[in-house]
């Protein structure tokens, strides 16, 4: 976030803390899309994503006076949403058995003849059937890897902010991200060939 935007947000948060409903409304408008998509990717359920959206902003309104500005506002808000989402996931049986996530096999990378992926046909990616397969791959990842992948790569948060939201160290964030990316790449190797994307 740029300095000017950050200042505007700080003012907005301050007004909201003093009971300005218009300021609260502006904060909801600013973050509603991101929170909804966070919930959707985390749970792969539109209903759960809507619940997370509503609960997050209800808590934001209730507790905004407790926000002290020690972290950025969006870090604080994402943390609320993430906690609600993870609690929701724990309360339900897993649809898929979680896969085991490992480090990249460096020996394999260097010894196997590498074939490149040409540019994808991104039009096919938005097709419902292919989207379902992409969603399944993410859903099969254990929560601690999926959350890092969502925050770092899909929501483009920094390593530091991701670590703060998930309450893990920056080193752990990096390791989990590396493994998550590698896992998804390996799964996509078969999928893109099968779907004729290359």
């Amino acid at each position: 976030m740029e300095t000017k935007d950050l200042q505007q947000e700080t003012e907005l948060v301050s007004k909201a803390q003093n009971g300005d409903r218009q300021a609260l409304s502006r904060l909801v408008i600013e973050y509603r899309n991101r929170i909804y998509h966070l919930g959707l990717r985390l749970t792969n359920s539109e209903q759960d994503a809507e619940d997370i959206l509503q609960e997050t902003f209800l808590i934001m309104i209730k507790k905004i006076h407790q926000f002290k500005g020690k972290s950025s506002f969006y870090t604080w808000l994402y943390r609320i949403a993430m906690n609600i989402g993870l609690r929701k996931l724990k309360s339900k049986p897993h649809k898929y058995q979680h896969v085991s996530i490992n480090d990249p096999d460096i020996e394999k990378i260097s010894s196997t003849a590498a074939s490149e992926w040409p540019t994808f046909d991104y039009g096919q990616i938005s097709e419902k059937r292919f989207r379902k397969k992409l969603d399944e791959l993410v859903e099969k990842m254990p929560d601690n890897y999926r959350t890092v992948f969502i925050l770092r790569d899909l929501h483009e948060l920094s390593t530091e902010d991701t670590g703060k939201i998930l309450q893990i160290t920056p080193s752990n964030t990096k390791i989990r991200l590396m493994r998550a990316r590698n896992y998804l790449k390996e799964q996509l190797e078969g999928l893109v060939a099968e779907e004729g994307l290359i």
């Binding site: 260097s110 590498a114 994808f120 991104y122 990616i125 990316r181």
Partner: peptide
């Protein structure tokens, strides 16, 4: 000594991009 590294990185990048486009 690793000639396949660039291909590996390119695939990681495209993997992330697929999900960004989908989202």
């Amino acid at each position: 000594v690793c000639r396949n590294c660039e291909v590996y990185v390119d695939k990681i990048k495209k993997t992330v991009n697929i999900y960004k486009v989908a989202d």
